[in-house]
């Protein structure tokens, strides 16, 4: 069995035999995965396949029932609290404060991560500029269109400069232009060395990832570069790969 020594500088996420059971139900069934630094990794699967359970374990929110994982070099079983501080996490349910302004949300999240006031204000300024939110910084968050909230939620999750960023369906319900802008930011973060671990139901977005895995009934049933997977299944799109490997729900 591989050990910690394998966890070299270039490995951002190392997952070994990770398992989670809820009673008799096995939500995550012995998964193995290595994700490199700066990689954009697409974590795909049908609703209920176990993606969110796996991500919750990797973020230190949920304890595993077996196996282990190292995120940014930190053991998720031994130091879940440290994992939480070192990673960035953005969910579909943005968890922003609607009755705070954009600036106030950034300041609040900076405070949670224990950043100094000066650092917060400097990074907020940079982020507002890159997220194209400068003109809206004093607007109430609740009154903003979804695409703006999404960019702000991304900003709040990277303020402390995490090495690994988890995005759980970040673009659900967002229009194509906002999605393009969002992906530009993802590429920028990846180019700077941030590892991106993203789940999505948009199969065109799966094509934008460096590598993807597809989960079904708690197991990883496909893994590789989009181009390789398409070749392997002799199809033109990731959507077709998905249909090829995921069994439809039998009702």
């Amino acid at each position: 069995m591989a050990s910690l020594e394998q966890n070299t500088d270039n490995t951002a996420v190392l997952i070994q035999n990770l398992t989670r059971k809820f009673g008799k139900f096995v939500a995550v069934d012995n998964i193995n995965l290595t994700v490199s630094r700066g990689e954009i990794f697409g974590f795909l699967g049908a609703n209920g396949a176990g993606k969110t359970t796996a991500i919750r374990m990797l973020c230190g929110i949920l304890r595993s029932s077996g196996g282990n994982a190292w995120v940014a070099g930190i053991d998720i079983n031994k130091k879940p609290e440290l994992v939480k501080r070192k990673i960035g996490y953005m969910s579909q349910k943005f968890s922003l404060y609607n009755d705070l302004t954009i600036s106030e949300n950034l300041t609040f999240y900076g405070g949670i991560y224990g950043l100094k006031r000066k650092v917060i204000s400097q990074r907020s300024r940079d982020l507002l500029d890159r997220l194209k939110l400068v003109g809206f910084r004093n607007r109430m968050t609740g009154a903003l269109p979804l695409g703006y909230k999404q960019r702000l939620a991304l900003g709040c999750s990277v303020l402390h400069r995490p090495r690994v960023l988890f995005l759980d369906e970040p673009t659900g319900g967002v229009d194509p232009v906002a999605r393009r802008e969002f992906w530009d930011l993802i590429y920028e973060l990846s180019d700077q060395g941030t590892t991106i671990f993203v789940t999505t139901h948009y199969m065109d977005e799966a094509e934008y990832c460096n590598r993807v895995s597809i989960m079904d009934q708690g197991r990883i049933i496909a893994l590789g570069k989009p181009t390789e997977l398409k070749q392997e299944h002799n199809v033109k799109t990731m959507q077709e790969v998905f249909f090829d490997v995921v069994q439809p729900v039998i009702t």
């Binding site: 049908a46 609703n47 659900g172 139901h201 199969m203 249909f243 439809p248 729900v249």
Partner: peptide
Amino acid sequence: EPTTGVDPVSRQE
């Protein structure tokens, strides 16, 4: 927007 947040297989159905 009836299929927002729904996986590709269920969306096809």
